[in-house]
């Protein structure tokens, strides 16, 4: 799969989820391939694993402010803090975006598995892939904030469906 193909799939899936479920029309931001490990970040990050003939990880990340806005639009209520409901909503947004990317990928790569989402909220955390592969990064502008979708996908060494490509999250102590 090329970066351009992945970028297009991410764009299609993300716009579809936001317009249908949240009533939000996203503005496209930049997209690029990220070779270096991401710098320490803060906010909310939701992550799912993909497995099949190609395997990898996908993440949806944004600030706490945007996570509260997205969750508010999804559930039609206001959130003053990032709480369990916000984390659950962000996990589901990630599940829908990457689930729809998975459906698009399956047209080219055959059946794939999708893990249940994990959501992280905090400050000064770093994500990296054990496989040290490239990440396709697609950014969107929403309510004055940035939403980032990252996808790392590589051919599996075996064709069996296994989780061969875990993402790793570390919390910096500084």
């Amino acid at each position: 799969m090329t970066h351009e193909q992945l970028t297009q799939m991410i764009g299609t899936a993300t716009h579809d989820v936001f317009s249908t479920m949240l009533g939000i029309e996203l503005e496209d931001g930049e997209s690029y391939v990220d070779d270096a490990p991401p710098a320490p970040a803060e906010g909310v990050l939701a992550l799912v694993g993909l497995a099949g003939t190609w395997a990898g990880s996908g993440t949806v990340a944004c600030s706490a402010t945007l996570a509260r806005h997205i969750s508010g639009q999804l559930l039609m209520q206001e959130f003053q803090h990032v709480d369990e409901e916000v984390l659950d909503a962000m996990g589901e947004v990630c599940n829908m975006i990457l689930g729809n990317v998975k459906t698009l990928l399956e047209e080219h790569l055959g059946p794939m598995g999708l893990s249940i989402p994990t959501v992280i909220f905090g400050r000064n955390f770093t994500t990296r892939s054990v496989a040290k592969s490239q990440w396709s990064v697609v950014k969107f502008n929403c309510a004055g904030e940035v939403l980032e979708v990252h996808l790392c996908l590589v051919p599996s060494r075996e064709t069996s469906v296994t989780h061969r490509h875990p993402a790793v999250l570390s919390l910096n102590n500084s």
């Binding site: 479920m21 999804l74 559930l75 039609m76 659950d88 996990g91 589901e92 599940n95 249940i116």
Partner: peptide
């Protein structure tokens, strides 16, 4: 659904 958000949305 394992997501409480989706259960709430479906009800709505």
């Amino acid at each position: 659904d394992d997501s409480a958000a989706i259960r709430k949305i479906l009800q709505r």
